[in-house]
Write a protein that binds this DNA or RNA. Sequence first.
DNA 1: GGACTAATCCCCG
DNA 2: CGGGGATTAGTCC
Length: 747
Amino acid sequence: MNGDGEMGLIGDTFDEAFLGRDGDGGFETRSPSDNFDASEEDREAEEPPKKKRYHRHTPRQIQELEAFFKEYPHPDEKQRSELSRKLGLESRQIKFWFQNRRTQMKMQLERHENVMLKQENEKLQIEYNNLRAMDPMCNNCGRVALPGEVSFEQNQLKIENARLREELCRVSSLTSKFFVKPLSQSDNPLSTSSKLALAVGRNEICGLGNVGATMPMPKGLGLGDSILSTSPVVTLMKPEMGVIENEMQVDRSMFVNLALIAMDELIKLAQPDSSLWVKGLNGGNDVLNHLEYTRTFRGCIGIKPTGFVTEATRETDVVIINSLSLVETLMDANRWVEMFPSIIARASTVDVISTGLNGNKNGALQVMHAEFQVLSPLVPIRPIKFLRFCKQYAEGVWAVVDVSVDAGSEGSNLNACRRLPSGYLIQDVGNGCSKVTCVEHSEYDDNYVHQLFQPFVNSGMAFGARRSLVSLQRQCESLAVLVSSDISGEENSGITSGGKKNMIRLAQRMIDNFCNAVCASSVRKWDKLRVGDVSEDVRVLTRKSMNDPGEPAGIVLSAATSVWLPVDRQKLFDFLRDEQLRSEWDILSHGAPMHEMLQIAKSRDGRNCVHLLRAGAIDVDVTEKSMLILQETWHDNSGSMIVYAPVELPSIAEVMNGGDPAYVALLPSGFAILPGFPSGHGGSHNCNGMPGNGNIDDDAVGSFLTVGFQILVNRLPAAKLTLESVQTVNTLIACTIQKIKAALKLA
DNA sequence: GGACTAATCCCCG
DNA sequence: CGGGGATTAGTCC
């Protein structure tokens, strides 16, 4: 029946009480089938004399309850009695269980929040101490320097320092090219044609074994043991029959090989005290030590193509998700995309080479294809085909590594990009949280990145580890907050939890749609328009929308552009999300403030939120004709978003009452804000030629604002696109940016 | 001794 | 009266 063998710790059967629980060996050898729930409960029921007060629900029951809880953290009476019948538990027990589960969830969230606050506090404390420790005297005149002057001079020095460091790396990598023997055919794992024997043999050489020395492991669970006891690491699945079978076998063994090497590299890169990284300036992000890197690894996917630049970042933090769930999410293309909206445009699993051992993801290896995006039309998406390999190192310790395959064959591609070993090292830290180290390492041709964005992308802020990790944190926090707000009964909005869930799903679809329109990923087929009149930094796309109940049918026009504004990101975000100030830029507001009708919080601080707004005076009754706006906002360390779409009252009302959100027609527009500096800005921040440094003191520097509008040009998909409509949308963008600048006094 | 969890107690709308 | 927060009690590590 259920896959999980019953491990002794939860067992509470009658016999076990007499057998004693000390010998843990005894339980593990029991077959799962000789202890199933029905008989167990029967026995329990026949035991009236000493009715044990303490008792735990069986794993099967808990599993079912958990599954149900994921869907409905707040079951009604009917659902509860259904469950009680199905699981053979009293209805009150079900009630208690859910009650307890919800409070537990809430506590986890609170504790997690505490941890985060503490960390932030520590960070600030360190920063403060550093500032205190620095001599605030001005060298020239001896007077106490103003804080601004100090940081300016320091900034100059730091920038200079980074430039020199970078130059050193470049020079040393050049020299090493001449002095180190280049990769020959037989060295390159990609070109090896040996079969499985090699793959398994390689396992012992290439380091999964020697990783143990450097990985901090929980006591009693030496890495060596776990590797040895589970080797061979991967079990190959049978490839499909056919003439190409032999070739595929070779292919697959190459993949296994490459995956193992990549995993070894990831683990080394993820070590906290690794010499592969140098501390960034300002105690900021780690910067890859290219010299050390080329010395340690032999380039598992070959030499960097000429003209490519490198981008490498890593980041570590606590995330409110346990290792197992995170691993499951990463290994499932659909769930992965959902977890990283705005970063992963689409993903699919092309081939599964191994599904893993014993029903879990340990040893799972698959070929995937994904498109990575940054929310700007000026940064091309990165389509990448890669291996994703998952390995469990100990109880609660996992790693998932990606590495490009076929990078060569796509070399001619416009936005060619290679993913060097990148991924996640995940360690449970209790309380449903895990410590996640993210490594993002890639090489790409930055000629296809708009000049404005080159320093930003080079710095690793665009596709780097911080953005991945922060996005993961935000998404996980949202999930936790949603569950816990269900608990605390913040139902004053008058919306049911089902309706709330629907609204969130709808908003999620809205975000996806917006990202697609801005980034032009291949989720939908867009045609690019070239119109003489339109500024070349505005990208205009068009497509026909048909047979999708999720959007209005007709010809859709999408226009998007990005500009840099010398304004604090937070300020820009607060301005754009303020419904009272909306009339200052939004033509949909018809010059009047908007009003909030509904708010569904997705984070504690209220910045990540789904809103329902309404245009028009507040004292006018809401009628079927009222203009409503669905809006989602979020704001985190890596960027912010405000995305909205006009919606019709009847369809929204239906969704809130449990109707399917897939049938609400949406055509979203909105903004994405990214922290950073443009190329060539203001002299002191001219960071051209300062790549590979993920450390930008962001908010002080300014913001990139991406504006994306979608309009329905014609309700008939067959109609012709007119020049006027293109100009309309172009003007709309220009005016909106102008208005925003004016409102923020930047013009 | 703290984390976890099933069950109680008790208050509030 | 039912739900939910606070609390308790039994167990495991």
